[in-house]
Each structure stands twice: as C-alpha cells, then as structure tokens.
Design a protein around this nucleic acid. Structure first.
Length: 622
RNA sequence: GCCACCUUAGCUCAGUUGGCUAGAGCGCCGCUUUCGUAAAGCGGAGGUCCGGGGUUCGAAUCCCCGAGGUGGCUCCA
C-alpha cells in the first residue's frame, strides 16, 4: 500500500529511454528539418518529445515513418558523444540553429533556478530542482548529425536501446502553460527486451477490456446519450443498483459514527457563493439557470459546503454542540471542459457526492481527523479497494490562490501530517495541490491504464468559517470560528463504482452485484417454471436479487449469457432439482473459497448468500 | 477549451483508386425444437452511413463548418 516508485536499479533502462527520445528527435529532424524541439524526458514505461512544426502537423499515420527512421538510426549504432560548452556559447548555438525553445531554456539556465518553472525542465537540463545555483557550462549530447542540450546520461550508442514502439501523439502546451503555444507531444514505450515490450502491450489490451465504459456497455449499467449531453450519464437499473448499495453502505457506516444526514437544494442563489467565497474561484465552472422576476441568478450547486454551513449556523450556538457531523448524498453539477470528460470518472452531473462536513473546535481537529482516516481504511478494506496511498496536498505560496495566513496553513499541514503518522498511513507530500481554503489529504490509486487518480479527499478548512463568519461560543464565553473538515470517502458514488468495476473487471462482490443469482431452466415446462418462481419468491423475501431465464434457448447458451453478465451464482433448474429439492450452484470463479461442490437445500443456499450479502463478504461461504 | 484521430443497424465491425438495391456476426422478432452447465436450426425485420453545407454525371468515400467520442495537454471546489 504505497505509491509505486521507480526502481532505482533501472538506471540502465532510464538511459535507454532517454536515448530513444534523442533518437526519435534525430529521426524527426531528418524527416522535417524545420522542427523546433522542446523537451524530451523519460516517463513511466517510456519517453516523449515535444516538438513544434509550423508548416506540418504530424499525425498518427506518421508514427510508422518515424519509427522506421528510428530503426535506421538504431541499426547505424551511432555513438552518443557528450561535450560541454559555456552557457553563452550554447545560446549562440540555439540562435544559429533556430531553436527558440532551447534558447528559452538556456536563458533560464543562465539566470539559473529563478525562472525554471517545472522540475521537469530542471532535471532535463542538469539543474538540481529547487537549487538556485548559477550554471557556468551546459552539457550536450550528439549522435550522428543530431545535437541536443541534455544532462544525460545516455547509453553508449544508438544500437543499445532495447525494444520500443511509438504509441500516440497529443497536444501539449510549452512548459505546461495554456497561454504558451501548443506543441505536439509524441509518446513511445520502451523496454530492455522485446518480450517485456510485448507484455506491456498485452497488458494495455487487457486493460481496455476492464475499462468501466466498456463494462458499462457490456453489463448494461449506464450510457451517455447525445440528446442528453456530454458528461451526463444515464444509469440503467443495474447501474443504479450498484450505486444505491454503495450509498446504503456509506450511510450506515457514517450514521454509526455520529454523522447526521441532511438534504439541501440543487438550485441556489448566487449570493450564497459570494458569501462563501466560492464565486470568485469557481463561477466559470457553475451552471447558471434562469433568473427569477426579481433578477436573482440561480446556479446548479457545484458543491455542498456552503449549504451545510447554513445548517451549521442554524444548529450550533455553543462549543457543547461540537463536533457537528453533517452528511449528504447530493447530486452536484460542474461544468467540466469537454476534453476532460471520461465516462463516470469525470462527468458534469449529477455527480452524487458522498459529502460530509465536520465542524470542530481547534482542540478537536486532530482526533476527528484521525477518526476520519480510520474510517477511510475501514471502508476501503471492506469494499476491496487495494493499492491506494495518501497524498498530503499542500499549498505553494509562490501562487496567489491560497487564502488566509501562512502560519495557519503550516499549523493545519502539521496536524494532518501528524494524523497520517498516528494512523500509520503511507503518504507522499505535494505542493500546489491544496484546496484554496486549506490543505488536504487525497486518496490516490492507479487506474487500469496505470495513470494516477484521486478517489477521495479529506480537507481541513481554515478559511471559510471566518469568511462566512460561522461562530460558536467557547467555554469562556468568547465567540470562535470552528474548523471544518470536508470529507468524502467514496468521492462521488458514480466514480467509485467505476473504480470498483475496473479493479474487479466487472466481477463485483455479491453484495454489490446488480444480479446475484440467475436460475436457468432446462426446459419451459410449467412445473419447471413454477419451481423456479417458488425459489424466486423466497429470494425476494431475503432481499436477494434473483432472476429466472426460462427463455427458449439451450442450457449452454443461457449459462453463457449469465457468465458474460458476471453473475455470481448460476443455478440450473430441471427435473433433478424438482425431485431432490436441492440445488447445485455454479459459483463465479473469483468467489470460490474451497472445492465445495455439494448440493444445498434451497433454504440453505439462499440464506447463505443473503448472509454473505448482508455482511458484505467478498468470498462465498457456500 | 486546445492538439491528433475516430463516428456505417441495438452492439462489434467490413465496405478496394468516388460507381449496381450499403454488408457480416451477435442481439431482436417469428417458427421449429423442450434441451443438464460458455453459442440448437430455419426465416424475418432493422440504416438520416453523426448533422449541415459544398465539389462531382455520381459521395458512406473528397473539401468546409458543427456535434459527439478516444488519447493527451490545461483544469479539477
């Protein structure tokens, strides 16, 4: 349970990948001599290079051409030569060869440290990130007729780079700033051996099958309709069943810990967001609706915090009322850029948030934070979320978006750090990831494609209670502002469902399975169907989700259909079962705990599954 | 929003350099069959080739505009 780190023994592989970035740049320079080059670093599983061709846009069809040219360079086995020159000389070089991006980097280097915005650039150029030391000489690498400003290291020659494949091409803003020109980024994957490359490509194919969007289609869970709009998914009965089970589960968990559920409107006047301060940060991402006769503008709520704060004001007068834990499963709407929308993971609405706000005194902050972190772990254990890690997201004070006083932020960060340590939570720290009103802990996982994603968050708000003038009276009779812990364990239920689907490849645990049992009749005779219906009735009494397939198909076909829907238990019903009154269930492979294939009485079978579902066990106890 | 690519039946996809009435498998409907643990047989229906405009004797195919999707970038309360 930790952030997967790059293996430090992989220096050789790192050099291979970095060398491939240069080889790709060489190939591109030979094909399109006017190309301006940005940076070309090593990334997970491979490398990329950012390039800018004003007269020709490279498309995916060109990748094969570039690959071919690269293979030629590899075959030529050109040596990589390293040499150094003074910065000023390098600047002359960049001017001569009309490489404006390299020139910009060199100018930054000359000024050193002060304007190197991204660590990426720094490591690329041989700067230690964060150090402001002046640079006298810079290093270059040359292979064949291609020379590049680079810190290295590289392999000895272009023949020693292992197996690679160019994957895709995308836009990328120069130095990650959307105000800068957009360059083309070409990605490749690379491994030491052909075999490892093939394995990686096979893994990507496998991951595609687990994509929650594909499972959503195959398992009839949800879809997105052009008529409704981008980012506005429609959940079908099976999808809604999963979501509802998750919501019931979380509500029971939270109520057991003293959270109280509330309900707030989806439509709200702008003045609430002006009071909370959200308006100045997020107005652009809020959906405005028709204004009323008095000219008040209403918004679809993008978050619940200010609404809960209103409830706080109504409920809390004294420190004796704290902590107050409010919770809501609320659908919010956020305008997200069209290019960012991704199935249930990034949508515009309704994003059903598992949202809580805990109002505490200063002395209660740490204990409450620890309690929240423990609840996180409990829920993830029980729902089977694995391989997650925590990220302590701190402000970057060189930016202006963080409100309040630096001292307060440092205190808040330290309390969270302490809570993480007390609960033995593995975590990394990152700057410039905090909310505008306080530092937070994000729960990070890797999705099927190996990208990092946040599934949940808990934030310590040190700003908004003061801004909204939320108060309580302390033991000495003085007015105080409370602290607010914003927490969301499952994030949005839709998104959490998507993660579970990808992690389980659609084989959800029994308690979450939209259909838990399917009865397959051998024939369509009356007594067979009636027998199945009798079982179905009992299942309903036990709150089990069971369906009967008595369609006019072969038994083999009906079993296949049920298997494809990843239904946990399939039971064939025919003469044998009617006579014995016993069932021999076909148990989904991932659920089997032993080689127990004995028949069960109907009551025994149904009750066991009902108990498993109720206690939310992940394996069958049949 | 930006860059590249994609969009043909409910789903997955064919459709040669522009040229017969746009095809297949699965699914769906009907009939036959009444079946024992991953696909029974036969027949049928089903299309605004994403939308709009243009080029052409002729457009699913070429060009322009728009929408939606995919992968990234930027953003993420």
């Amino acid at each position: 349970m930790a952030k997967p780190e790059a293996n430090p023994n992989d220096e050789r592989l790192h050099a291979m990948r970095h060398s491939l970035a240069h080889i790709m740049a060489s190939a591109i320079q030979r094909l399109w001599p006017e190309t301006k080059f940005g940076v070309g670093p090593v990334v997970e599983n491979g490398f990329y290079y950012d390039i800018d061709n004003s007269d020709y846009k490279i498309s995916e069809e060109d990748l094969l051409r570039i690959e071919k040219a690269m293979k030629k360079i590899v075959a030529a086995d050109e040596p990589f030569e390293r040499f150094e020159m003074p910065v000023d000389e390098a600047i002359t070089w960049a001017k001569k060869y009309e490489q404006p991006y390299k020139l910009e980097l060199l100018n930054d280097l000359k000024r050193s440290g002060t304007t190197v915005a991204k660590e990426l650039d720094a490591s690329e150029l041989g700067l230690e990130a964060g150090k402001g030391s002046k640079i006298e000489d810079v290093s270059f690498y040359r292979n064949g007729d291609f020379t590049d400003l680079c810190r290295g290291p590289h392999v000895e020659s272009t023949g020693k780079v292992g197996a690679f494949k160019l994957m895709r091409i995308s836009g990328a803003y120069w130095r990650g700033d959307e105000k800068n020109p957009q360059m083309q980024r070409i990605y490749g994957v690379a491994f030491a051996t052909e075999k490892e490359l093939r394995q990686h490509l096979a893994m990507l194919e496998e991951a595609k099958k687990r994509d929650h969007r594909k499972l959503g289609e195959d398992l009839k869970l949800f879809f997105i309709s052009d008529s409704v709009g981008a980012g506005l998914p429609l959940l079908m009965p099976r999808g809604e069943t999963i979501k509802n089970e998750l919501m019931k589960y979380m509500r029971a968990k939270e109520e057991a810990r003293g959270y109280q559920y509330v309900a707030t409107p989806v439509l709200t006047q702008s003045k609430l967001y002006e009071r909370s301060g959200h308006a100045s940060y997020y107005l652009e991402n809020m959906y405005a609706t028709k204004s009323d006769e008095e000219g008040n503008v209403f918004y679809l709520k993008p978050m619940n915090c200010p609404h809960h704060h209103m409830i706080y004001e109504k409920m809390v007068e004294s420190y004796r009322d704290l902590p107050l834990r409010l919770s809501e499963h609320a659908g919010v709407y956020r305008y997200e850029l069209s290019g960012t929308l991704t199935g249930l993971i990034r949508m515009r609405g309704p994003i059903t948030q598992n949202d809580s706000h805990i109002y505490v005194t200063q002395n209660q902050v740490e204990a409450e934070f620890v309690d929240v972190l423990e609840l996180f772990k409990e829920v993830y254990d029980e729902t089977g979320v694995k391989d997650y890690w925590f990220r302590l997201s701190l402000p970057d004070f060189s930016k202006e978006k963080y409100a309040g006083q630096k001292k307060q932020w440092e205190w808040a960060g330290e309390i969270i750090r302490k809570s993480l340590k007390v609960t033995n939570s593995p975590f990394v720290e990152e700057l410039d990831e905090a909310a505008f009103y306080g530092p937070k802990v994000d729960v990070q996982i890797k999705n099927v494609l190996g990208n990092e994603d946040s599934i949940a968050t808990v934030q310590l708000d040190i700003v908004v209670p003061g801004r909204m003038n939320l108060t309580y009276v302390d033991a000495e009779g003085n007015k105080q502002h409370p602290y607010v812990i914003h927490k969301s364990i499952m994030g949005a239920f839709e998104r959490f469902m998507a993660f579970l689907l990808e992690q389980t490849a659609g084989r959800l645990p029994v308690w979450l399975a939209p259909e838990q049992i399917r009865l397959v009749t051998v024939n369509q005779e009356k007594k067979t169907v009636e027998f199945a219906e009798k079982i179905a009735e009992r299942a309903k009494e036990l709150d089990l989700r069971l369906t009967i397939d008595d369609s006019n198909e072969s038994v083999g076909k009906k079993i296949r259909n049920a298997e494809l829907m990843k239904i946990p238990y399939i039971v064939v019903i025919g003469e044998k079962e009617i006579e014995s009154g016993e069932l021999l269930p076909r148990v989904r492979k991932d659920l089997e705990v032993s080689e127990n294939h004995d028949p069960h009485t109907i009551e025994e079978f149904l009750k066991t599954i009902a108990n498993d579902a109720k206690s939310r066990v992940s394996k069958t106890s049949l």
